[in-house]
Nucleic acid binder design. Structure first.
Length: 828
DNA sequence: AGCACGCCGACT
DNA sequence: GTCGGCGTGCTC
C-alpha cells in the first residue's frame, strides 16, 4: 500500500484505487484516479464512482496502487467527497473481519456501518420531456398511465412506475418512451446530510443604552404595539438564555413572523443563521459523587485485577446489585486516562434511562447512537466521535461501527440479550462478539455484564478464557424476593382458580393493592388468544406467509401473524366448514388484562407489550404512570422484565411459566431461566421484601427450582450435559423463505445435524449456536452440503470450510421457489 | 443492488 | 405469435 504525504507532488504517476462498494459484491473494484486528484486520494475517504451502466455510488477507498489492472480498462473516479478519511484503517480491518466471520461481503458491512446519509447513491428519475408535444392518441394504455402520473407528479422513480403499472419489468417500456422522446431519464445524486439551520435574533447593541431603549419603546407603543411586545418578549427571554432563536421568540411573544421581520428591517433586531446540533446536550450539573457499597468495592477491585491478565471479563451480578455504578467508575477512570469508552446496550428503550444517569457524570462528552436516530443525527454523532469530542458513546449494536480512535474500554451491558444479534440484512452479526474483536483490535478491555449470563460467555469464563467476577448482593440492602410456586392443575381441581389467576396470586394482589403497592403480571404472549380452532373440523387459521397459527387480537378485532406482521379479519364462522363453533385457545396479555379488569374493577390496570408501546412515547408514558403510581397493576410481555427498576412494585405474578418452559427449542431452558429470574428480580424495594408467584402446570420443573434458588451454576451444569443429547426432529423448524442463517455458529449446528444423519458419528459439539433454526432451507442447499460431505469426508475444519464454500456460492445465487423443503415436524 | 439477455409458459 | 416472469451473469 502506498501512502502519500499531504501536498507532495505525485502528478506524473497514474494512481488506481480499490474501492469498497456498498453492495453485496464479493470483490473490490479498481478505479483510476485523475491526475488532479492524485494528492487527495487516501485510504478511508469516500469517492463517487460509476458502477454498471449508469448508477453512481459512494465507495470507500480501501487501497491505493500504481499498478494498472491488466484485464480491463479502469473507469475514472468521479469525485472525492472527503477532505480527511472518515473511516480508519482499523475500521476497515474490522469490516473485513466481520465480513469473513459472518460470511458476507465487505460492501454489506459498509452498508450497515455507515449512516445512510454518508452513502449517496444515484437514483433513476423519470420526467416528461417538455420539448415534446404529446399526442395522446399515439400512446398505448401503459404509456398513457405513465404520462398521466407524471403530469400529477413531475418526478418518478423506476420502482414508482413498476408499482403504478403493477408489473415488474418496466425498463423496456421506459426505454421505448425515451426513444420516442416522450420522457427523460436521468441519474440524480443528492447529498442527504443537511446541517440544521436556525435563525437567531439579537437586539441591536444600540439599545443596550437604557435611554435609547426607552425611546424605542415609546415610539413602538404608539405606532406598533405588537412590535413593542416582541421586543419586550426578547428582553425577557435573553435574560434566561444565552441565545434566542426566531422560533422561540415568535412563540413567546405571540407575534407573527411578519412582526419580527419588520423589526429586523428596522434594524432593531439582527438575524443570524447558525448551524445547530440536533443532538441533545446535557445541561445538568456534574455530580460525580456516589458511594460504592462494600461488595461493589470488592468487585471493582476484582475486575481491575482480572483485567491485568485478561482482556475480557464477565461480571455476573444479581439484579439491582448496582452494576451500572461499577461501570460508571470504570468509565470515569478510562476517560480520565484520555481514552474512549463504548457502552453497549441491547435496546434503545434502555438508553434514555441510563443516559440520564451517565450525563450526570460525563456531561457533554457522552454521545448516544441507535437506530431510532434519523440519518442526520447519526452523521453528527459519527463526526463527533471522529473528532474525539465524544469520549463515551452509549448505544445499541450498530455503535460498534463508529469511528473510534483510541478505544480503551467496551462495556457490554446485559450481555446475554438476543437483540445484540442482527437478523435480517447481512451482516448477521452479534454486537457482543464483534465488541470482543473490536476490543482486541484496539487493545481495549471488554467488560460483559449480566445477571443471567449466556451459556457461551459463562463457558468462556469457566474455562479461563475470560476473567470472572461475581456480585451476589443487591445494592442498598434490598433483600432478594421470596418465591412461591403454585400448581395450576391443583387449583383447577380444587376450583380455587379464577380465570387464569390462582387464589395464591389473587391474595397477594389484593394485599398489595390494599397496602398501596404495585403489581406486575408477566405473560409471554401478546394478543388475546394465540390459536383459534374450529371445534367441528379442527381448522386453524394460519399465516399465508409463515405457516404459523394466527393470534387473535381483541383490540383490533383481527388475526395477526407475530412473525411477519400479516393481518386479516377475524372470522365469525369457520372458513373451512362454516361452523360457528370457533374456540379461542391459550391466552395472551390482552386477555390477562381483560379478565383481571372483571375480577378487580377498582384497580387501575395497564398493559405493556409491543401493541401498546408502538407509538413514540408510549413506553416512557407507561413507565412514568407506573412511577407516579397512576397504575396499580401492569400486565405485560417480556418488556416488563427489561432492566428497569420500579420502586413501588412488591408483587410479581408469572401467569404461566409453561409457555417458556415448553418452548420447543434447545435453548429453551436457558431462556426460561433468564426470563423468570429477570422478572422476579423486579420485586421488592428497600425495607419491603418482594414476593414472586410462579403459576405453572409443572411445579417440579428443574428450571423453576434453579430460578428459586438462583442457582446459575446448576443450570449451567445441567445444560452442558443435557444439550449433548438433545434430539433434533428431522428438519427441525425449517420455516421461512430464505437462507437467513448464515451465521457460522448456526450453520455449524445445522451441518452438525446433517452430518450426524449422514455418518452417525459426530460427537464433538459446540455449545450454544446463537439461535435456533427458524428457516425453511432450500432443497438443494441441503443437497449441496450433503454431497460435499459425502465427497470430502467429515473432519471439523472440512465441515466449516464446506459450509463457507456453499454459503458464499449461495450468496450470489437466488434459488427457485419450487425447491422448498416442507418441514416434517412443525412445533406450531 | 441494478440491469441486460435469454428461456419459457400464458395470453391476445 | 408476443409479452412478462424468472434465472443467470456482469458490473472496474
Amino acid at each position: 500500500m502506498l501512502e502519500f504525504a499531504e501536498g507532495q507532488h505525485t502528478d506524473r504517476k497514474t494512481l488506481f484505487v480499490e474501492v469498497i462498494l456498498p453492495l453485496a459484491i464479493a470483490i473490490n473494484y479498481t478505479y483510476r484516479v485523475p491526475f488532479e486528484m492524485n494528492d487527495e486520494v487516501a485510504v478511508g475517504k469516500r469517492v463517487v464512482v460509476q458502477f454498471g451502466k449508469s448508477k453512481m455510488y459512494t465507495a470507500i477507498i480501501a487501497r491505493i496502487s500504481e499498478q494498472a489492472p491488466e484485464k480491463y480498462e479502469a473507469k475514472y473516479i468521479m469525485d472525492i467527497l472527503d477532505a480527511a478519511p472518515i473511516v480508519s484503517l482499523q475500521q476497515l480491518q474490522f469490516w473485513a473481519w466481520l465480513a469473513d466471520y459472518y460470511l458476507c461481503n465487505t460492501g454489506e458491512v459498509m452498508n450497515a456501518a455507515l449512516p445512510s446519509a454518508l452513502k449517496l447513491a444515484s437514483e433513476t428519475k423519470i420526467e416528461l420531456n417538455k420539448e415534446y408535444e404529446i399526442d395522446r392518441n399515439t400512446l398505448n394504455d401503459r404509456e398513457y398511465l405513465i404520462v398521466d402520473a407524471l403530469e400529477i407528479q413531475p418526478e418518478l422513480t423506476v420502482s414508482d412506475i413498476a408499482k403504478l403499472l403493477g408489473q415488474k419489468t418496466v425498463m423496456p417500456i421506459l426505454k421505448l418512451m425515451f426513444e420516442k422522446n416522450i420522457i427523460l431519464i436521468s441519474e440524480e445524486v443528492s447529498d442527504r446530510y443537511k446541517p440544521r439551520m436556525r435563525t437567531f435574533i439579537t437586539l441591536n447593541p444600540v439599545y443596550r443604552d437604557p435611554d435609547q431603549l426607552k425611546e424605542l419603546f415609546s415610539i413602538l407603543e404608539k405606532r406598533a404595539p405588537k412590535q413593542a411586545d416582541a421586543v419586550l418578549a426578547y428582553i425577557q427571554l435573553s435574560r434566561k438564555q444565552k441565545a434566542v432563536s426566531k422560533n422561540e421568540l415568535t412563540e413567546a411573544s405571540g407575534a407573527g413572523s411578519a412582526i419580527i421581520k419588520s423589526l429586523i428591517e428596522k434594524e432593531v433586531f439582527f438575524a443570524e443563521e447558525k448551524n445547530v446540533s440536533r443532538l441533545q446536550s446535557g445541561d445538568d450539573e456534574l455530580e460525580a459523587n456516589f458511594e460504592l457499597s462494600e461488595a461493589q468495592l470488592v468487585a471493582l477491585g476484582e475486575i481491575r485485577q482480572e483485567f491485568e491478565g485478561k482482556d475480557v471479563v464477565l461480571l455476573h451480578g444479581v439484579t439491582s446489585s448496582g452494576k451500572t455504578q461499577l461501570f460508571i467508575r470504570l468509565i470515569e477512570e478510562m476517560v480520565n486516562s484520555g481514552r474512549q469508552v463504548l457502552y453497549l446496550l441491547p435496546e434503545i428503550a434502555l438508553t434514555t434511562h441510563i443516559v440520564e444517569r451517565l450525563r450526570k457524570y460525563f456531561g457533554n462528552a457522552i454521545g448516544v447512537y441507535h437506530s431510532r436516530f434519523n440519518d442526520n443525527e447519526r452523521v453528527e454523532v459519527w463526526q463527533k466521535v471522529l473528532s474525539g469530542q465524544y469520549r463515551v458513546v452509549l448505544g445499541a449494536r450498530s455503535s460498534v461501527f463508529l469511528p473510534f480512535s483510541n478505544l480503551g474500554l467496551i462495556v457490554v451491558d446485559e450481555e446475554h440479550e438476543t437483540s445484540y444479534k442482527q437478523f435480517d440484512p447481512a451482516p448477521r452479526y452479534n454486537a457482543r462478539d464483534a465488541a470482543i474483536y473490536l476490543g482486541n483490535m484496539y487493545k481495549a478491555k471488554v467488560l460483559l455484564g449480566s445477571a443471567t449470563p449466556s451459556m457461551e460467555s459463562y463457558y468462556n469464563a469457566h474455562n479461563g478464557k475470560y476473567g470472572f467476577v461475581e456480585l451476589t448482593e443487591r445494592f442498598g440492602g434490598v433483600e432478594m424476593p421470596t418465591t412461591e410456586v403454585v400448581s395450576i392443575a391443583e387449583e383447577t381441581k380444587k376450583k380455587t382458580i379464577q380465570s387464569h389467576f390462582t387464589s395464591v396470586l389473587m391474595n397477594d394482589i389484593t394485599t398489595a393493592l390494599a397496602n398501596k403497592e404495585q403489581v406486575i403480571l408477566f405473560q409471554n404472549r401478546r394478543g388475546y388468544a394465540p390459536i383459534i380452532i374450529c371445534k367441528v373440523c379442527a381448522y386453524t387459521p394460519k399465516c399465508i406467509n409463515c405457516d404459523v397459527s394466527l393470534t387473535y387480537h381483541k383490540s383490533s378485532g383481527k388475526l395477526h401473524c407475530h412473525y411477519c406482521g400479516y393481518k386479516e379479519e377475524s372470522p365469525s364462522v369457520c372458513p373451512a366448514c362454516g361452523s360457528t363453533q370457533l374456540e379461542y385457545k391459550g391466552f395472551g396479555t390482552e386477555k390477562v388484562e381483560d379478565e383481571l379488569k372483571l375480577l378487580l374493577p377498582e384497580a387501575r390496570i395497564a398493559r405493556m407489550d409491543l401493541d401498546t408501546t408502538r407509538s413514540k412515547n408510549a413506553f416512557q408514558n407507561i413507565l412514568n404512570d407506573l412511577d407516579e403510581h397512576r397504575i396499580d397493576i401492569l400486565a405485560g410481555t417480556q418488556m416488563v422484565a427489561k432492566g428497569l427498576d420500579f420502586a413501588g412494585v412488591t408483587v410479581i405474578g408469572i401467569i404461566s411459566a409453561d409457555s417458556l418452559l415448553k418452548y420447543p427449542d434447545f435453548r429453551a431452558n436457558e431462556r426460561a431461566f433468564q426470563m423468570l429470574s429477570q422478572v422476579s428480580g423486579r420485586a421488592g424495594r428497600r425495607g419491603k421484601q418482594g414476593k414472586v408467584v410462579i403459576q405453572t402446570y409443572d411445579p417440579g420443573h428443574r428450571v423453576i427450582k434453579q430460578v428459586i434458588e438462583n442457582d446459575y451454576v446448576d443450570l449451567y451444569n445441567t445444560e452442558m450435559t443435557e444439550r449433548k443429547s438433545f434430539k433434533y426432529p428431522p428438519f427441525y423448524r425449517l420455516i421461512q423463505l430464505d437462507i437467513k442463517h448464515k451465521d457460522p455458529e448456526v450453520l455449524y449446528h445445522q451441518a452438525e445435524y446433517l452430518a450426524k444423519e449422514l455418518r452417525k458419528h459426530f460427537d464433538d459439539r459446540v455449545i450454544g449456536p446463537e439461535y435456533p433454526l427458524v428457516g425453511r432451507i432450500r432443497n438443494y442447499f441441503i443437497k449441496s452440503i450433503m454431497m460435499k460431505f459425502e465427497k470430502d469426508g467429515i473432519s471439523l475444519p472440512k465441515v466449516k470450510a464446506t459450509i463457507k464454500d456453499v454459503i458464499l456460492q449461495f450468496n450470489t445465487t437466488k434459488l427457485s421457489k419450487g425447491s422448498i423443503i416442507q418441514p416434517d415436524v412443525d412445533p406450531y
